[in-house]
Design a protein around this nucleic acid. Structure first.
Lengths: 109, 109
DNA sequence: TTATATCATCGTATATTTACGATAAACGAT
DNA sequence: ATCGTTTATCGTAAATATACGATGATATAA
């Protein structure tokens, strides 16, 4: 009785909320920035770029992966993380279109 | 030792994360949609449009207000909520520009 | 003044989030 | 086989978030 009632809402709205939730922590946004900037698909370098412990960064990476925004493939002893460009852009587009629909209608007050 | 370390990140990143956090629940997105759609600044009608208890909706409204996305002014016994169009668009623009900067650089994998 | 309506807040319960250290698991190198 | 590196997971602790009913506060109406 305390879980988010995401079932009771429209699917597009729930998906947009899930996307927002994935970006709802500065560490995860910065991780995406790092992954986007580095041309090679660096993995653990992410940790050294963040002011957080390795285990904490790993948790954030897991959250981003579960949100479908990044992928991680094993590369020797390391793991190579990448933005899933296709999925990211798709979800992002849906999110932004919801934002647009909101701002477009604002004319009260 | 469990609070989000938002201080340790760039301000723009932290602000973007705060914006995302405000939208990280379907109820809050739907509230914004309702406020945007209704031309008059309806207040408690929001409650009747959502599948949640009045107190819960009130909490979500509070969260949106604290995020600076909506305003609420007393109108008789009722309270009139409105999207703060200026603030909303400003924060939204900053957020989207961060999204754009991420997607623009994606060419790994 | 006394209701009635509207909304916020309180109290409460539970789940989730955030963070860290410690440990386990997987791999390459010696 | 053993060691070092890298990453994930476990265990744990504390803060937040989510949800609801009950109660309080405020303003209009009677």
């Amino acid at each position: 009785m305390t879980t988010a009632k995401t079932d009771a809402f429209e699917l597009t709205v729930s998906r947009a909320a899930a996307f927002a939730k994935a970006l709802a922590h500065p560490a995860r946004i910065q991780i995406l920035q790092v992954l986007a900037r580095k041309k090679t698909c660096v993995c653990g370098e992410v940790v050294s770029e963040l002011p957080l412990a390795q285990s904490t960064v790993s948790q954030h990476l897991k959250a981003l992966k579960q949100a479908g925004l990044i992928t991680g493939e094993i590369d020797g002893p390391a793991v190579c993380y990448c933005i899933d460009a296709r999925a990211f852009n798709s979800i992002r587009k849906e999110f932004v279109s919801i934002l647009d629909s909101i701002t477009a209608d604002v004319d009260c007050c």
